[in-house]
Amino acid sequence: MTLIVKKTTQLLAGIVFLYGIYVILHGHLTPGGGFAGGVIIAGSFILLILAFGSEFMNLTREETGTTLTENLAILAVLLIALAGMIVGARIFFDNWLPAGKVGELVSAGVIPLYNIFVGIEVAASILTIFLALVIFKEEITK
């Protein structure tokens, strides 16, 4: 890619990433949440990879990393859900943290936690899909 593309992407990617975090953190207050924010975060990484390219070895290493992250994040979601069976009302997916006041950033009990982990999971999994497809393509051209 040309220098213009590289420089613009460099400037944009950070902002896109931050916006993704914003969408995830305000998931329980505004439209958006884990899935939408996760896709935005993955988008910022994909932008960088598209603009700068990546070595084949690097790609496979990144792919194993994202797979691990994805699995850890979704396991965390499951553990939070299962924690509801141990504390509080002892029900699967129970909201066992205090609900707080409507409209504040720290409120709605465990829902922001779900949003955060789902966001990580979605970002990692979309990145995994992207990297896997790129790796497949590289293997064909070799």
């Binding site: 797979t67 691990l68 699995n71 850890l72 979704i74 396991l75 499951l78 299962l82 069976m85 699967f92």
Partner: peptide
């Protein structure tokens, strides 16, 4: 719920 939660946890733990 364990019928769903246990195999899901197994699937993710396997990869980790």
């Amino acid at each position: 719920p364990l019928f769903i939660a246990v195999p899901l946890a197994g699937a993710f733990l396997t990869i980790i």
